[in-house]
Amino acid sequence: MNSSVIISSALKTIELQAQSVSGLAAFINDDFVNAVLKIAASKGRVVISGIGKSAIVAQKIVATLNSTGTPALFMHAADAIHGDLGMIQQDDVVIVISKSGDSTEIKVLVSLIKNFGNVLIGMIGNAQSYLAQQSDIILNTTVQQEACPNNLAPTTSTTAQMVMGDALAVCLMELKGFNSHDFAKFHPGGILGKKLYLRVSDLSSANEKPAVFPEANLKEVIVEMTKKRLGTAVVVSKTNTVLGIITDGDLRRMLEKGNDFTAITAKDIMSAHPKTIAGDAMATEALDTLKANNISQLVVTENELYAGIIHLHDLIREGII
C-alpha cells in the first residue's frame, strides 16, 4: 500500500464512523426517554452485559455511569450463566448489548433475566433479533456497515454503542443534577481530581509566611525573605491586614535607584495593594489569576487577614499546570 491508499482507507473509516454516530439521532426516541427514566427511578443498580467487543463497550459504559453518579456493574454474558447471575438484584435494571441480538449466550442470558422479572433494556443492532423481541425497552444502535473492508469486524457498530452509552450517562447526569462537586467526590485521584477539589489553602498552608511590618528596615526585610525562602515578604499591619508586598524585583529596582539604603523601610519599597486570593478559592482560580496578571505568587487571605503565600511552583508541583 502506498501513502495515498493508506490515507484514503483512514479517511473512509473516519467517514463511516461519523455516519454511525450521526445516524443515532434517528434512534433518540420514546424508548430512549423511557430507558433514562427507568434507570433514574430505579432503587437498584444498572447491570450491563455483553459478549465479545460488546462486552468491552459494556465495561466502558459501566465506568462512565459509576463516575457520573449512576451505580453500575459489568456482567459478562458467558460468565453470567455460570454463576454471575447472582449479582443481579431485584431492583436492578439490566442492559444487554449485542449487535446481532441472536448469539447463543445472549439468548440464554435474556431468557434467564426475563424469569427474574428485571427491566431489560436491549442495546441492539438488529431490530428483528431475539434480544429486540424480548427487551422491555430498545436502544437501537443499527449501523449501515462496518468500517472493516469485509464488513465483519465490529468498528462502526461498537462506536455507535459507545456513543449511545455516553448519551444515556449524560442524560442521567442532567436529570439527577450531578455537578462538578459531585464529580470530584468520585475522582479524588490524579490531576483531574486535584483540579476539582484542591483549594488554595491546601497548598499555601505548607509554605512559610514571610511577613514584616511597614517600619522594618532593609536588613530585616532581606533576612525575612531569605529565611522564608519564597523570594517575597508581605507587609502587614499590627492587626495582620495586608498592606503591600516586597519581591526580589522590588529590591533590585531599589538598588538601581540609589546608594544610601540606611533609612529605607519596608513601606518605602513595597508594592501596595498586591493581588490576593481567599484560602477557600480553588487552586485553578489561583492559576487563572497568576496568568492574567503575569505574576508568580499570590497573597492568601482568610477573613481579610494575611494567611500565607501560594506560588506558581506549588501549582506546578501538584500538576495543576
Score class of each variant (00 low, 15 high):
M1Y: 03
S3K: 15
V5F: 10
I6M: 15
I7P: 03
L11Y: 03
V21W: 02
V21C: 03
G23N: 09
L24V: 00
F27K: 04
I28R: 00
D31S: 12
F32T: 02
F32K: 00
N34L: 13
V36T: 02
L37N: 04
K38I: 09
K43D: 11
R45D: 03
V46G: 06
V47Q: 00
K53D: 03
K53V: 04
Q59I: 08
Q59C: 04
K60M: 09
V62N: 01
T64L: 01
T64E: 01
T64Y: 01
L65M: 07
T68K: 06
L73S: 06
A77H: 07
A78E: 05
H82G: 00
L85A: 05
L85I: 11
G86L: 12
V93W: 05
V96G: 01
I97P: 02
I97M: 08
S98K: 02
S103R: 00
T104A: 10
V108P: 00
L112W: 04
N115Y: 04
F116K: 15
F116H: 12
G117K: 00
I121T: 10
M123Q: 12
N126T: 04
Q128L: 14
Y130F: 15
L131Q: 08
A132T: 07
I137F: 02
Q145K: 12
C148T: 14
L152Y: 09
P154T: 10
P154W: 08
T155W: 09
T156R: 04
T156V: 08
S157A: 08
T158Q: 10
V163G: 12
G165Y: 13
L168D: 07
L168F: 09
V170G: 02
C171I: 06
C171R: 11
F183V: 02
A184N: 13
H187F: 07
G190L: 13
L192S: 06
G193M: 06
K195H: 11
L198E: 09
L198C: 13
R199M: 13
S201F: 12
D202N: 11
A206Q: 11
E208Q: 13
P214S: 10
P214N: 08
A216P: 01
E220Y: 10
E220F: 06
E224A: 12
G231N: 05
G231D: 07
T232R: 03
T232G: 03
V235R: 06
V236A: 02
S237T: 08
I245W: 03
I246S: 03
T247Q: 01
D248R: 00
G249N: 04
L251D: 05
N259I: 07
F261Q: 06
T265C: 08
K267I: 12
D268A: 14
D268T: 09
M270Q: 10
S271Y: 08
A272D: 10
H273S: 14
P274E: 05
P274K: 02
P274Y: 05
T276S: 11
A278H: 15
D280F: 14
T289W: 06
L290N: 02
A292E: 15
N293Q: 09
S296N: 11
Q297W: 01
L298H: 04
V299W: 08
V300Y: 01
T301A: 07
E302F: 05
E304F: 07
L305M: 15
I309W: 05
R317S: 06
I320S: 07
I321V: 15
I321M: 14
